[in-house]
Design a protein around this nucleic acid. Sequence first.
DNA 1: GTCTTATATCGGTAGTTTACGATGGATATG
DNA 2: CATATCCATCGTAAACTACCGATATAAGAC
Lengths: 103, 103
Amino acid sequence: MPDEDFADVMRALGHPVRLSILRILAGQSDCCCTDVTECLPLAQSTVSQHIKVLLDAGLVARSPRGTRNCYSLNHARLAALNGAFSGLFAGLSSTPHTAAEPA
Amino acid sequence: MPDEDFADVMRALGHPVRLSILRILAGQSDCCCTDVTECLPLAQSTVSQHIKVLLDAGLVARSPRGTRNCYSLNHARLAALNGAFSGLFAGLSSTPHTAAEPA
DNA sequence: GTCTTATATCGGTAGTTTACGATGGATATG
DNA sequence: CATATCCATCGTAAACTACCGATATAAGAC
């Protein structure tokens, strides 16, 4: 994953409300925007915008169902992100070309 | 780690330049602000501000050495973050719809 | 004491984010 | 058709972010 994309996803995760939304979506299966809004002290338009950020980052998926839109976690994307995250840390931890810190 | 703190760290990671700075610090041992600036197409003041963001997030540490400040990765913090990250995904994955909630 | 180097911080500008209420376009239901 | 629900989007204001040049401070060097 390119740094730009990775940074975009990090920024999408960089707001407590969006973390809450992810947990709400993980806990309920057929979850629409109104359902999420009822769990949060925010206006519907604000929640809709937060969901859009998560959509743009690819972290959640939308499936229109009748008059409402159901949202769900994109588990494949989450797994890929977890891998990219581990990869970043691996890159930061190795790179022993400086031969570690000798006292 | 509280959501607020976690979100702060995510936001600190949410800029390509700061990812670059982390990699630069991983690759050089006694690395001061000027060293980092020479690796990037940015003004010294800008780099200093990015480093401050990483400092505030606890991702890097500062050690004054003579007339310069040497920066290094905070590996303990990175490990803790990696744990928090895995924990988040565990929480998101392990609640498909197991109905652990009382109605 | 003076000069140099290193760097944090100030001041400013431009762009982005967050939040809200209001609106309009869907999709049912009566 | 009329009505209600759902929800993305618009318009807006406040707050934040990114970047720069300029500056002030602090530590060494001379």
